[in-house]
Design a protein around this nucleic acid. Structure first.
Lengths: 152, 152
DNA sequence: GATAATACCTACTAAGTTAGTAGGAATTAT
DNA sequence: ATAATTCCTACTAACTTAGTAGGTATTATC
């Protein structure tokens, strides 16, 4: 049930953008330094986020990427699905990319209790990821740093 | 967040064994016919389930595999972890195979909000899979067939 | 005691996926 | 004009997956 580096890195980059004050853009170069992600690889990830309309870009010198929407309107679920595919453990239990059992690996679709189970798992994952926005994550991170600063 | 065929097939085979009346064994040959899983591949899976003490085997003619414990004492979570590894999307959020952030891919462990998120996902998945036993699944499947029989 | 069906074990492999890297074209503020 | 940027396609090494192959050990039955 592992996340790929693409999903991992995409969420990190978006969190970084969400932490910026106001609508500000960062270049891949800056983003890669802050997140320690290989710039060329991060570049691919950012472009994919752009075509999905999660970030938008400005080209040329002083170019970069910024969130296409307020961070509170971008869910982690949306991003993970984009980078890693459907959340369901099995294609037969997927909402976004359903494949009927006979076309998948099940010999018998009717009354497949396992499908019900995988659907429950999918539901549980989606419940967490679709309710979590980058706005929430950024807020939490800012709070944590605040506490840290006082603790020193 | 996909399950591998190993995890998929292992749960199918165990459900098949759980559906048997009383403590009865099935050979890999029989199991593979019922589940339509390649016998040689299924054999490997069954042996792995044996070393994990989920099934036990009898060798020689009339040999086969049977559940090592009552089906109500075998959880899906146990089986999925065995075949597919930890449930957590990220190693830093894993309970069974934790890897601290700095040793993983995070530059900064302290106050990592993403780790908290992945831990929530792990928790949600474990909640479903560790509470579901093969006894429950078998019961549901029997009920479903009952209904089906009446419906005809 | 021979036979046949079984579990056990190790090794191999083809195909697919992952996690990048390489190199250049188009764009744009200065 | 320059330099920093995004954009785009292609390539690749390493790893993982999903099996297959071939043989050994065991055991109920005849």
């Amino acid at each position: 049930m592992k996340l790929s580096t693409k999903g991992d890195y995409a969420t990190r980059a978006l969190l970084e953008l969400s932490l910026l004050e106001g609508p500000r853009a960062l270049s891949v170069h800056e983003l890669s330094e802050r997140t320690r992600i290989s710039p060329k690889y991060l570049e691919q990830i950012m472009r994919r986020l752009r075509t999905a309309n999660i970030v938008r870009s400005h080209r040329g010198i002083n170019g970069g990427y910024e969130l296409a929407r307020p961070s509170r309107d971008i869910t982690v679920g949306e991003v993970v699905r984009l980078m890693d595919g459907p959340l369901a453990p099995s294609a037969c239990a997927s909402e976004s990319a359903h494949v009927p059992c006979p076309a998948y690996r099940c010999p018998t679709e009717a009354g497949c209790v396992l499908r019900g189970l995988w659907a429950n798992v999918r539901e549980a994952i989606a419940d967490v990821l679709d309710r979590t926005t980058f706005g929430q994550l950024a807020e939490k991170q800012r709070d944590a740093r605040h506490v840290e600063a006082y603790a020193i």
